[in-house]
Simulated scan of single mutants.
Amino acid sequence: MSATPAESIAAVERSPQAAGAHDREGWVAVFAADARVEDPVGSRPHRGRAQIERFYDTFIGPRAITFHRGGDVVFGSTVIRDVTVEVRMGPSVAMLIPAFLRYDLDDSLRISRLQAFWELPAMMWQFARNGLRAVPAGMQLSRALLRNQKLAGTVGFLSGFLGTTVRGKQHVGRLLDDACAGDQVAVKRRLANALSVTRGDDERIGTSELVALLHGARWDGMIRAGHCVAARVHRDGCRLVLFADVETRPVRIRAVRVFADEQWT
Score class of each variant (00 low, 15 high):
147 R>V: 12
227 H>L: 01
214 L>F: 02
193 N>D: 13
172 V>G: 13
174 R>I: 04
140 Q>K: 09
218 R>T: 12
196 S>K: 05
124 M>E: 14
255 A>K: 10
263 Q>A: 14
37 V>K: 10
48 G>S: 06
104 D>T: 00
82 D>W: 13
36 R>D: 10
37 V>I: 12
220 D>A: 15
156 G>R: 05
164 T>A: 11
125 W>G: 09
201 D>E: 15
244 A>H: 04
155 V>N: 02
77 S>M: 07
160 G>N: 09
15 S>E: 02
67 F>D: 08
187 V>P: 11
183 D>L: 07
155 V>H: 04
1 M>F: 06
127 F>A: 05
189 R>W: 11
129 R>F: 05
247 E>R: 09
152 A>I: 08
111 I>R: 08
59 F>D: 09
150 K>H: 05
254 R>F: 00
181 A>W: 02
251 V>T: 14
181 A>G: 03
112 S>W: 00
31 F>W: 06
219 W>P: 07
154 T>C: 08
261 D>W: 13
25 E>I: 00
131 G>V: 08
99 A>C: 12
146 L>S: 03
157 F>T: 11
22 H>A: 03
12 V>M: 12
236 D>C: 10
167 R>S: 06
177 D>C: 06
4 T>R: 10
75 F>W: 15
176 L>F: 08
219 W>H: 15
128 A>M: 15
90 G>R: 07
184 Q>D: 14
232 R>I: 04
108 S>Y: 08
221 G>C: 07
153 G>I: 01
51 Q>E: 15
139 M>G: 05
54 R>H: 06
247 E>D: 13
114 L>S: 01
154 T>A: 14
50 A>V: 07
169 K>Q: 14
211 V>S: 09
118 W>Q: 12
187 V>S: 08
93 V>H: 11
181 A>Y: 02
188 K>Y: 04
92 S>A: 13
24 R>K: 09
62 P>H: 06
46 H>Y: 15
165 T>V: 01
149 Q>E: 10
241 V>C: 03
232 R>K: 14
234 H>C: 09
10 A>T: 11
206 G>C: 06
79 V>F: 04
21 A>P: 03
25 E>V: 00
91 P>Y: 11
163 G>R: 02
22 H>K: 07
146 L>T: 07
37 V>S: 11
87 V>K: 07
139 M>N: 04
59 F>A: 14
6 A>K: 09
31 F>Q: 03
218 R>M: 13
147 R>T: 14
214 L>Q: 01
24 R>V: 05
106 D>T: 01
79 V>I: 05
197 V>R: 09
163 G>A: 03
175 L>H: 13
202 D>K: 10
72 D>W: 13
153 G>W: 03
197 V>M: 05
259 F>Q: 04
139 M>K: 11
15 S>F: 03
219 W>E: 07
121 P>Y: 11
252 R>Y: 01
18 A>Q: 01
255 A>N: 05
195 L>T: 08
61 G>A: 15
104 D>Y: 00
121 P>S: 11
42 G>Q: 10
62 P>L: 09
205 I>M: 12
6 A>W: 02
14 R>Y: 02
200 G>V: 05
245 D>Q: 10
215 H>I: 07
130 N>Q: 08
102 R>N: 03
261 D>G: 13
249 R>S: 08
212 A>W: 04
66 T>E: 15
187 V>R: 12
209 E>A: 15
207 T>A: 15
